[in-house]
C-alpha cells in the first residue's frame, strides 16, 4: 500500500488477504479451561509456588513426625550444658536450662502449626457463616450481622486474645489459644466474603438460577459460594501465617500456651533475658517462626496472583 489513495478514491483491500471467518467463532484450544484448571496451569510454572509448597510440606512433616529429624529428647535438659555452643548431634547448641535448641525447635513445630490451623478453621467457619448469610440475604440480616462483625472488628484481635487468655488463665491449651485468636479474627473473613458475595449475587447467572426456580439456599450453595471463595482461599493462606505469629506473640507475652508446652513463642520468651549472653537461643526459634510464616505468606501471594485476574494484570 505504498501508493496511497488520494482523497476521494474508493480503496478495497484485495479479498484474498482476508479470510473472513465464522462471525462469532472462537478458536477453542484442545485443552479444557476453567478458573481452577487455569490457576493450576499458571501456578505450576512458578518457582515461588514450588519453593513455598515444599517448605510448607516439610513443616507439616516436621510437625507430625519430629522423631524423623532428631533423636534428642528436648525435655531432658542437663544444666552442665547451660548455654553451651553447638556440638556434634546438637547443631544449634544449648539454652540456659541446658536443653538442646535444635530438638526444641523441631518439637515446637507441632504446637505452632496446630494453633495456626485450628485458628484459621475457627475464623473461617464463623466468618463464612456471617459473611455469606449477610451478603446473600441482605436487608436486616445483613444489618445485624454486619454490626456484630463491627463490634468484634473494633477490638484488635491480639488485644482480645490477651484478655481472653488472662481471664481464662487456667485453661491454657492449644484449643483455647485458637478460640481466643480465631474468635476475634473472623470479621476480616466475613468482610472479604461479604463483599465478594455482593459482587457475585448480582451477576446474571445468579438471577438466571432464581428465574429457573432454584431456591435461594440452593442458589447460594451451587452458584454464589463457589464463585466467591477464590479470595477466601488467599486470605486463609495468608492468615495462617498471621495466626502462627499471634500464638507466638501470646506465648511470648506469657498468656499463650503453658510453659510446659514446647512452642517457639515460649522458647523465644524464655531466651529473652539471655539476649546479651546467648542470642542464638533466641534467634533459632525466631528463624523457624519467620520461615514458616514466610512460606505461608508466599503461598498466599502466589495464589492471589493466580486466582485474581486483576492482580495478574497488575503484575
Amino acid at each position: 500500500m505504498s501508493d496511497y489513495l488520494t482523497r476521494n478514491d474508493h480503496f478495497v483491500a484485495p479479498d484474498a488477504d482476508h479470510s473472513i471467518g465464522e462471525v462469532d467463532a472462537v478458536a477453542v484450544s484442545d485443552k479444557v479451561s476453567n478458573l481452577w484448571l487455569d490457576t493450576w496451569r499458571d501456578i505450576r510454572k512458578r518457582v515461588l509456588f514450588w519453593v513455598s509448597a515444599v517448605v510448607v510440606l516439610l513443616i507439616v512433616i516436621v510437625a507430625l513426625f519430629p522423631g524423623l529429624f532428631t533423636q534428642v529428647n528436648p525435655t531432658k535438659c542437663v544444666l552442665d550444658f547451660s548455654n553451651a555452643g553447638p556440638a556434634v548431634g546438637h547443631p544449634f547448641g544449648y539454652d540456659k536450662q541446658g536443653c538442646d535448641v535444635f530438638s526444641r525447635v523441631i518439637h515446637g513445630t507441632n504446637a505452632s502449626l496446630s494453633v495456626g490451623l485450628l485458628t484459621v478453621l475457627i475464623s473461617t467457619v464463623v466468618g463464612v457463616t456471617f459473611g455469606a448469610l449477610g451478603g446473600f440475604y441482605g436487608k436486616w440480616i445483613d444489618a445485624v450481622l454486619s454490626r456484630v462483625g463491627d463490634i468484634f472488628f473494633s477490638i484488635p484481635y491480639i488485644l482480645a486474645a490477651v484478655v481472653i487468655m488472662s481471664v481464662f488463665s487456667q485453661y491454657r491449651n492449644v484449643l483455647m489459644v485458637a478460640v481466643a485468636i480465631g474468635g476475634f479474627a473472623w470479621p476480616g473473613v466475613a468482610r472479604v466474603l461479604r463483599s465478594e458475595i455482593l459482587r457475585v449475587k448480582n451477576a446474571d447467572f445468579v438471577t438466571a438460577s432464581t428465574a429457573l426456580g432454584r431456591s435461594r439456599v440452593k442458589t447460594l450453595f451451587l452458584h454464589v459460594l463457589p464463585n466467591s471463595i477464590a479470595p477466601l482461599i488467599v486470605l486463609t493462606t495468608l492468615s495462617l501465617g498471621g495466626a502462627i505469629v499471634a500464638e507466638a506473640t501470646l506465648s511470648f507475652l506469657g498468656v499463650g500456651l503453658p510453659g510446659t508446652t514446647m512452642s517457639w513463642g515460649n522458647d523465644i520468651s524464655a531466651a529473652q533475658s539471655d539476649i546479651r549472653t546467648n542470642p542464638m537461643t533466641l534467634i533459632y526459634p525466631s528463624m523457624a517462626l519467620t520461615i514458616t510464616v514466610l512460606a505461608f505468606i508466599m503461598l498466599g501471594e502466589v495464589l492471589r496472583d493466580a486466582l485474581d485476574p486483576q492482580a495478574r494484570a497488575a503484575r
Partner: peptide, 30 residues
C-alpha cells in the same frame, strides 16, 4: 470518508455514501 477495519487491517475506504451504497469488500457488505 469512512475507513472500514477488520482484524488489524483496512479492508475498505472511501466516501461515506459510496461505501454504504456500493460496498465491495465482502466484509463491508456483511
Amino acid at each position: 470518508r469512512v475507513i472500514v477495519m477488520y482484524r488489524g487491517e483496512i479492508v475498505e475506504a472511501g466516501p461515506s455514501l459510496e461505501i454504504l451504497q456500493n460496498p465491495i469488500h465482502p466484509y463491508t457488505k456483511r
